[in-house]
Design a binder for these strands. Sequence first.
DNA 1: TATTGTTATACTCTATAACTATA
DNA 2: TATAGTTATAGAGTATAACAATA
Lengths: 163, 163
Amino acid sequence: MTKPSRSAPRAVSGTKPAKAKPLALGDLTQLLGYSIRRAQLWIFKEFSRQLAAFEISPAQFSVLCVIDANPGVNQLAVAQLLSIERAGLGRLVDHLESRGLVRRTASAVNRRYYVLYLTEAGIALLARLRPAAAESDKALAAKIGPRAYKELRQALSIFVEDA
Amino acid sequence: MTKPSRSAPRAVSGTKPAKAKPLALGDLTQLLGYSIRRAQLWIFKEFSRQLAAFEISPAQFSVLCVIDANPGVNQLAVAQLLSIERAGLGRLVDHLESRGLVRRTASAVNRRYYVLYLTEAGIALLARLRPAAAESDKALAAKIGPRAYKELRQALSIFVEDA
DNA sequence: TATTGTTATACTCTATAACTATA
DNA sequence: TATAGTTATAGAGTATAACAATA
């Protein structure tokens, strides 16, 4: 596809966007799924802004949290808990290990297992990430209002509990 | 990184996952942002399941909806309305055009503009997509309950209105 | 000089299958 | 035979910059 050609036929619209022609989202406004999608994009942007200095993605943060809450957990369990493919999680842990945040140890009991711990550096970093993550969630609460925040927390908890 | 080696030192855990050691998400359960992320993943999966027969992604569906609601809209306006990069939207429209769902016409007024319309096939397909999309949103309503559904619709509408 | 759209590139995610080593 | 982890691969989405055509 190249640029619009001179042989343009009977097209009428596309004139001045400055005019009073507000665009409509159509059926999308009726779908909660679309609102949640847009909310999620906003949240990731806000999260990344808050944690930009640490170079930690939302997914990396979630893995650090789970290892912190379950010292000695194995990779597959983390992947299932977070609904991440185990192959993808392996690479994610690779990266965290190369940054010295996570320690991978072979299980003494079952040698198919890796056993994951946070390093001292990982624990220290997570201590700094936590308030930043809480800040980004506060920004979300400010955006939607405290009552809606509480309602949503309760309504959407089922998506993380049946993991 | 290879497999755990024989020289595994003093690792203790990672034994029998069948035992009663429920994994914890840690701080993640406190973050609404994480719940919304998980909810959004669930929704995309459900949407893809409902619309599998049509081979239409959520993003493609959203573009069809916007063109339908705004015949003669130009690409940049669609991109801004949906918060998609214009380069990415160009490829997306390429695909819809190659499937005969969207017609690209050069604007007679401003030749920098493309002017987008649904073709007859596009209109016909969208008529079949709409109930399927509504179905997937109903599945979401069933999952979280009708009251929460209404509350969320209102609380999250701000993310689509200030587009 | 600014704007619409395209192209190219790169990077991240995701999904899948095949492979190993262990059980 | 099944499981934990890795590797390789391909596809989608995203972000960026550079470019042509037009205003």
